[in-house]
Structures are given as structure tokens and as C-alpha cells.
Design a protein around this nucleic acid. Sequence first.
DNA 1: ATTCGGATTCTCT
DNA 2: GAGAATCCGAATA
Length: 203
Amino acid sequence: MKTIDRTFYVDDGVTVAKKLLGKIMVREEGGQAYYFKIVETEAYMGIEDKGAHVFGNKKTERTAPLYEIGGTIYIYLIYGMYHCLNVAANEVGVPQGVLIRAVEPLDEKSLAYAKANRPIKSKKIVDLTNGPGKVCKALNIDKSLNAKSVVDGKRLWIEEGEIDEGFEIVEAKRINIPYAEEYQDKLWRFYIKGNPFVSVIEK
DNA sequence: ATTCGGATTCTCT
DNA sequence: GAGAATCCGAATA
């Protein structure tokens, strides 16, 4: 497998969000690597997107990583308890990004890693990683990765998926941004049709 | 199957 | 001092 390089991320957020589906996210910790397929993403399209943290060009200490070059990691805390993982898209100064909403553990070792990080009562392994807060918990991702990069081959990176995989992409409305007005209807959430790890399926 | 509320703390006004 | 790009368990039907 080959680590995806910078040029992949220097593109508009919607394009990067779609391209990330089916790719393999690799988490490295303690000299071990764990593999997860990206099955659901959301694009946040910058200063005009009312659902984005940077709406109105609100550059603050928190949102600064989104203004960096595509491939920069942006982690934030939501509802006081959960971290969410984003990858910045586009050029420096264009604060777009992609929220990683759901992943699928690709082997037993990765599954065990997720379980160890996120002990739950549910027997369904789907419940381990089918949501943005869950993904971060299961992969032991927190603010120590904020503003780091996904292209330096350390801690967290993304690789090409199976060559001939072939899947259908569903375009859907983004989740839980009621204040975003007309932007909450944008079809900027993308997921792999039929994949059981997707957090919310369209009717 | 679906609804409901509580958890918990960072960030910005 | 408010509110947040969520999750989970409990209660109801």
C-alpha cells in the first residue's frame, strides 16, 4: 500500500470527501499499525458554509488548522466529551475540511485495538466506529494529534484502498447542524452504499 | 422501534 | 455564561 500524498488533499472539500471513501486510514501507536476503511465523510466548505466552524471567516485558535494546507489534521471537542477528526482540504488560507464520520476495522488486530480503546456493552461491532465521536475514541485520537499532518507517515495517515473494489457513493444531507439554515440541505455527506458501519442511512 | 435526557468541558462572546 | 459537526442507556409502545 502507498501513503496518499499532499496533492490529494489540495482540492475542494467535497471532492476530497468523496475521494476519501474506500481509502484506508492507518493508526500507528506503540510501533503497531491498525487499519480502518473510511466509509462515511462530510465536507465543510469554508467561510460561506453556515455549518462550518469557520463561517464568516472566523479564524481562532481552535479553527486555525483548517486554514493550513490540505492534509492538516483538525481535532475538536464536541459536547464536552467527544473528539471529532477532520482533515483540512484545499490551499493555505482556504478553510475547508472533511469530517471522518465512520470507519470499518479491517482485520482482527484492528478490531481488538478499537475494542480496547472503547469498551462498550453492545455486542454489535458496528457500534464501535459508526459515528465521529466513536471513531476518535476507538482509534485513541485526541487533541494531541491536532494540527499534525496526515501525509508525514506518522501516527495517522491514509493509504489507497483495494484497486478493484467498486462501490456506489450515496450523497446525503449533513447530520445535526440545525443552525446552518440553507446549508443544512446541502448534500455534502457521503457514504458507501450498503456498508453497515455508516452512522445514518437515508430513507 | 422510537423518543428522551444527561453527561461534561472547551471555546468564544 | 452559553452552547456545541455526539453518544448511550433508559423508558415507552
